[in-house]
Amino acid sequence: MAHDTHPAPSTVYHPAPPGMDTKIAARDLTVRYGGALALDRVHIDMPGRAVTACIGPSGCGKSTFLRCINRMNDTIDTARVTGSIRIDGEEVNDRSIDPVLLRARVGMVFQKPNPFPKSIYENVAYGPRIHGLAAGKDELDAIVETSLTKAGLWKEVADRLHQPGTSLSGGQQQRLVIARAIAVNPEVILMDEPCSALDPIATARIEELIDELRENYALIIVTHSMAQAARVSQMTAFFHLGALVEYGPTEEIFTNPRDQRTQDYITGRFG
């Protein structure tokens, strides 16, 4: 970890606990927006079939990290990503990797629910359609139904599939967006503060959903709420000023943080 240019961040690195397969592995991952350093040499291994929570104060780089995993930083002109990030050992930042294919494998849910200006059905069917995953109408119907069911929305919308997605309530919209993401059967689902725009009841519903999804997908969730991180995640990563400060099993981070900054953050001294 020796760097010539400036001292290494004081990263407390926890490898994935034994018995957990590594799904995503980042090495020296650095992101700059123009001149500003947003992510500083992050080094992390994340497990599959588990929920990893990224916490930290605003501007700490946790969202930037998330956007590295499906290369959403490509859409920002000034963003420069260096270092390596691998999914199942395959380099994401490689030129030969097509972001389109990558994003079909890595789904993403955003802070504000953003259903497309289409019907509920078309919203969920969008991914399978553009990627050509369904052979016919029947198969597409089946995908839509399973996805909505998995997202826990089927019962609520089964009789109004052809109404616009924007006609749903905020919580329903967010579940619709999750259904849209899982319709292409991704390996990883990224969630960028998925509950920050929702009321407590809708939040509880989404958290339940996250817990159910864990069985099939690797979930990485950025959250402001430490309580939420504690409730839904198995692993937790704490970011501060662009650096990964501490990473480990959630329980450990919250009960016995090793770094003073983590301690201060989770006890509410700053953030």
Binding site: M72, T75, L101, F110, N114, F116, R180, A181
Partner: peptide
Amino acid sequence: VPQTLRDGAYAMGAT
């Protein structure tokens, strides 16, 4: 048109 809509589409793997 809000950027979140575009992001949503890109995140789905749209060109």
